[in-house]
Simulated scan of single mutants.
Amino acid sequence: MGKKTRTRAAAATTDGENPRRPCPCGSGKRYKACHGAGDDVIVIRPFEGLTSEPDLVAMREFLPSATAPLPVRDGAPATLASVLPGASAALVRVNGEILLGMQVQTRSGDLAADLAAALTWARSAEPGSSLPVVGPSLRSSERLQDLLDPDAHLDLTVHKDFAWWLADDGEPGAEAAAMLERANSVILPTEQVEGKGVRAAYWVDTGSKAHLRWVRPEPEDRLMAALARLSERGELELSADSRYAGSFRAHGLLVPVWDLDQEMHSSEWSEPAASFAARLEETLEGLDATPLTVDEHRARDVLAGKQITLR
C-alpha cells in the first residue's frame, strides 16, 4: 500500500488482507472484487463523531427521497440529498444552489471523504454543472467531519416524490421528465416517526408490509445487550400491533426493524416509539449495574441470529 494511505482510528487498512476473503467493508463481495481492487482505506463507521450520524446512515441506505440543509461550519449553504438525478455525487443548479448526493456509485472506502470532496468541487464549479462520481484526483485528507458542526442535527425532510429535482426555471425537458417519472414510479411511501426520545426512526410501506427502521447510535454490543434484556422481559415490541423482525448493520451502526400493522397510519407509531425509547434508555442505563443473566444471554444469541450487514 502506498505511503499516501491515510491512517485513522476509525479505519481498517487493507494491508495483509487475503483477496479471497470477504471484504471487511461488509458488502458481501470478495476483497479482491471490492476494496482490494485499489489503494484505499475502509472506514467502517464513516460518520462517527457527528450527532447527525444516524440520519446520514438512513439517507445513504434506505431513505428514497429526502433532503436536509448541510450544517457546515462556515455557513456556506449546501443541501444534502438522498439521491440526485443519475445518482450524481453533486450538482450546482443554474441559480448556484449546491446539492450533494448520498446514494452514489463509488468504490471509495470513506464516504465522509467523498462528501467533503464533492462539496469542495461544487463550491468552485460553474452553475449548471454536475459531478457524476468522486474520483481519486478529487479526494484529499479532508473529511465531512472537518466541515460540519459536529453537534448539529439534520433538519431532514422526507419527500413523497422527486419533484424537488426540478429547479424553478421552467418546464423540464423530455429526458428530465422521463427520469423523474421513472424515479417516482419506484419510490416507497416513507415517513419520519417523531416523538420524545425518538430520532432517525422511519416508517416505510413496501407494498406487502409496513416496517419501522430505527438507526441507533449506541455501540452494537451495548445495544444488543439492552435489546436482549427487553426481549426476555417481553418488552421488545413497540406495541401489540408490531413484531420485532431483526436488525441490519449499516456503516458501523445497528438498525433494528419492526414489522407493523399495515392498516395503521405512520403517525400512530409516534407514541409507541416514544414509549420504547424510554424503556430502551432505562435498560441501557441499568446494564452497568446488572450484567446479563443466562436467559438474557440466550436471548441475545437469538437476536444476533437475525442480523445482516449492509455495509
Rank of each mutant, 00 (worst) to 15 (best):
G2E: 06
K4D: 10
T5G: 05
T5F: 09
R8W: 04
A10I: 00
A11G: 13
A12Q: 14
D15F: 13
E17H: 13
N18S: 08
R21T: 11
C25K: 03
R30P: 00
K32F: 15
A33T: 10
H35R: 02
G38V: 08
D39I: 03
V43E: 06
G49W: 04
S52I: 05
L56V: 06
M59I: 02
M59T: 11
P64E: 06
P64I: 06
A66M: 08
G75D: 07
G75Y: 15
A78R: 02
L84D: 02
A87N: 08
L91W: 13
R93K: 15
V94E: 14
I98E: 05
L100Q: 02
L100D: 09
G101V: 01
M102F: 04
V104E: 14
V104S: 00
L111M: 12
P127D: 08
P127F: 00
G128D: 12
G128I: 09
S129C: 09
S130K: 12
S130L: 13
S137G: 03
S141E: 15
Q145M: 12
L148H: 01
D149Y: 04
D151P: 00
L154F: 08
A163P: 02
W164D: 15
W165A: 09
L166V: 03
E171R: 15
G173V: 03
G173C: 07
A174E: 13
A177G: 06
M179H: 14
P189F: 08
T190Y: 02
T190K: 14
E191F: 09
Q192L: 15
G197W: 05
A201N: 04
D205G: 04
S208V: 07
A210D: 00
V215Q: 05
P217T: 06
R222I: 15
M224I: 01
L227R: 08
R229Q: 11
L230E: 14
Y244T: 09
L253H: 00
V255T: 15
P256M: 05
S267N: 11
E268R: 11
P272H: 03
S275L: 10
T283E: 11
T293D: 13
T293P: 01
V294N: 04
D295L: 15
R298F: 09
R298M: 02
R300I: 00
R300N: 03
T309M: 06
